[in-house]
Amino acid sequence: MYGGGNTFEAIRTDSLAQEDPEKLAAFEAKIERGEKIEPTDWMPALYRKQLIRMIEQHAHSEIIGALPEGTWITRAPGFKRKLSLMAKVQDEVGHAQLLYSAAETLGKTREQMIDDLLSGKSKYSNIFNYPAFTWADSCFISWLVDAGAIVNQLANAKGSYGPYCRALERICAEESFHLKYGHHCVIFLATGTDKQRQMFQEAINRWWAPMMHFFGPSDKISAHTEILMKWKVKMGTNDDMRNQFLDMYVPKIWELGFTLPDPNLKKNPTTNKWEYTEPDWEEFKRVINGEGPCNKERIEVRRIAEERGRWVREALKAPQAAYVTPLA
C-alpha cells in the first residue's frame, strides 16, 4: 500500500550549512549519476531524516492498511476470495516488515518507529482513516487504493536509497497481484446483480474524496520539496502522481459503467491533463491530524495488539529462548 513520500511540513534546510561541502558535493554527484546510496555511505543529516520519515510512514501505512481490509477476511464470499484476500493482506504485513528493516538501516529501530506511530508523532496514509463498511469497500481498496500505491511505489523504486529501492521492487511485484485480485473482484460486482453494482457504486462515492487526497496536497499549496527531488527522495510531484492515477484508472472505472462523484472530472485534450474539482484540503489536514472517522480506532487497535503481544516479545528475547524466525 501507499509509498507516497508526502511531505506535510516545510523542509528546513538550515542543517545543510553544517555539512562538509566536499562530501555533500560528492553525495549529490553520485545521485546525479544514478548510483544508489547505501547504509554505510556518507549522507547529509537531512537526507537521513527525510528518508526515515518517508519509509517509516510507508511501513506504518502497510500495517494500518491491513486493518480495514483485514476485517473482511473473515467475511469474504467464497473460498477463492477468502484465500486471495488472506494472501493479499498477509503480503501487506510482509511489506511492513520489509520496510521497517529498510528504515532500520538508517538507524531507527522498529520499536522506536512503532512507539512514534502509537504516540501520533509519525503518520501513515490518510486513506486508512476511513471505514470499510461493505465488501465493495474492501474491493475498492484492493483495486484502486493499491493502484494508487503502485503509482507512488513504482516512482519511488527509482529513488536514490538502495535498501528502500530493493524493498520496493519486491513490493511492487506483489502489488501487481493485489491489483489483479482487486480488479477481478470489481469486475464480478460490475457484471453481477443490481445489488452488487449498487454496492460498488456506493463504495466509489464514499472513497473518491479520500482517493483524491491519497496523493497529497496540490502542488500549489504543498511544501517545497525541490531538495528532496534533487536527492531522489521524492520522485514526482503530488499532482503528477494524481494525474497518472486518473489517467490509468478513470477510463477503467467508466468502462465498467460506474460514475465518479465529480461533475468536473475530465481530461483536457489540449494539456492532456485531468481536471477535477479541487479536493477539500482542509478536510485532508483535519484527518491527517487525527480528526478522521477512524484515526482513534486504528491506533487503538495497534496499541492493544502491541500491549497484548509484549509478553511474547519479551519472552523471545529471554536468554533461554533466542528467537529464530519461524519458517511457516
Partner: peptide, 20 residues
C-alpha cells in the same frame, strides 16, 4: 483472525500462512 493483531509481525505472517 490474527492478521493485523499478532504479537509481532512475524507471527501475523505465520498465522496467516497456516490459515491459508
Amino acid at each position: 483472525e490474527w492478521t493485523g493483531f499478532g504479537p509481532l509481525l512475524e507471527e501475523d505472517i505465520a498465522f496467516s500462512s497456516m490459515a491459508q
